[in-house]
């Protein structure tokens, strides 16, 4: 083996973890839906509409908001949502 034919990996060498999606619930009965606004312009228009429609169907809704769309959600916020909700809807795009 020519030494020049060995290269060093410039990547993080991570192996992506494959995680199965959770099973889709058959109904909203007894479930709390979190709605996460990522603070992208006009995302609230869409999410307000979704919240209203869920409310009409008697579904429990909790609203959350990221400080800015340019950064991942703070860990505390993610933990809060995971603790308080069964489902989450996130709005992306303008």
């Amino acid at each position: 083996m020519n030494a020049e034919q060995i290269l060093l990996d410039p990547t993080s060498e991570r192996t992506p973890t494959a995680r199965a999606l959770l099973a889709r619930p058959a109904s909203f009965d007894g479930l709390t839906v979190g709605i996460l606004d990522i603070s992208k312009a006009r995302g609230d228009v869409f999410l307000d509409h979704i919240a209203a429609r869920l409310g009409e169907r008697g579904v429990g809704v909790k609203r959350y908001k990221k400080p800015t769309f340019t950064r991942p959600a703070p860990t505390e916020l993610k933990q809060q949502i995971a603790t308080e909700c069964n489902l989450v809807i996130e709005g992306l795009a303008d």
């Binding site: 034919q5 060093l8 990996d9």
Partner: peptide, 11 residues
């Protein structure tokens, strides 16, 4: 002392 993965490529 290098820790990165070594990748052998064909001759």
């Amino acid at each position: 002392g290098l820790q990165a993965r070594e990748i052998k490529i064909g001759d």
